[in-house]
């Protein structure tokens, strides 16, 4: 289908550029590790404390990493007017949204896939449960779904980097709550049943905001 071919062309272009520079992944990864280290000093590493705050730490870290990497998503398009190049091409605005969203999703998932084991290693946690993987995936989809919309918006404002967190965090609070609660259960060996209602909320959030962002993206990028 032509829609997906063009979507993947846009995503592939982002992947290619990222493979060249490793700008987003390397910088955000270093940032992520630094945050984890700072948390270590803030809370200490006694098993009791870790058990209590691990899930919260994880999601504070991922939420900040998400904002940081989403902030970069459209910067590349602004240089040399590339975004206008996309606008004059025979692709719908929805294709642009989907392509950029998938790129950000991929980058963020890679960052998380690297950060999670390190997190587990440093805090002596068992993170490899299917529950946790599903939680991380669903929450990340929610992040990039609405984050791509706001990132495109923020890059067109005067204070670029400042704007995204202010818009992004209030909207994603529900899925951060869900991710923290569900991860807490998953890290202590909870079953699917314990987290099902959280997965439900996060899933609903994902679907709703992918659709809404898809529909109103055109209004953000028009001039």
């Amino acid at each position: 289908m032509s829609f997906w071919r063009k979507v993947f062309a846009i995503t592939w272009k982002d992947v290619l550029a990222e493979m060249r520079t490793k700008e987003i992944i390397s910088a955000v990864l270093v940032f992520t590790l630094l945050v984890i280290v700072i948390f270590n000093f803030a809370f200490g590493t006694s098993p009791d404390v870790v058990k209590l705050v691990a899930s919260g730490m994880l999601w504070v870290t991922f939420a900040f990493s998400g904002v940081l990497s989403l902030n970069r998503a459209f910067v590349m398009e602004k240089e040399e007017g590339c975004f206008e190049g996309l606008m004059v091409a025979p692709v719908s605005r929805e294709i642009i949204y989907t392509g950029k969203m998938l790129g950000s999703l991929l980058f963020l998932l890679i960052i998380e896939a690297i950060a999670l084991p390190i997190f587990a290693f440093l805090f002596n946690l068992g993170v490899f449960s299917w529950q946790l993987i599903v939680i991380v995936f669903l929450t990340t989809v929610g992040f990039v779904g609405v984050g791509t919309l706001f990132s495109a918006l923020a890059v067109n404002t005067k204070a670029r980097e400042m704007v995204l967190p202010i818009l992004f965090f209030p909207i994603v609070i529900p899925i951060i709550i869900g991710a923290v609660k569900a991860s807490e259960s998953a890290l202590s060996g909870g079953s699917w049943g314990d987290i099902s209602s959280w997965l439900g909320i996060t899933g609903a959030f994902d679907v709703i905001f992918l659709v809404v962002s898809y529909l109103i993206f055109a209004f953000v990028i028009e001039e």
Binding site: V146, L149, L153, L167, P170, I171, I173, P174, I175, I177, G178, I201, A204, F205, I208, F209, V212, S213, I216, F219, V220
Partner: peptide, 16 residues
């Protein structure tokens, strides 16, 4: 855009 996204978010915020 923020008004629309924000309003849609309210039920999910209350629920969570």
């Amino acid at each position: 855009v923020v008004g629309i996204v924000g309003f849609v978010d309210i039920p999910i915020v209350i629920l969570s």
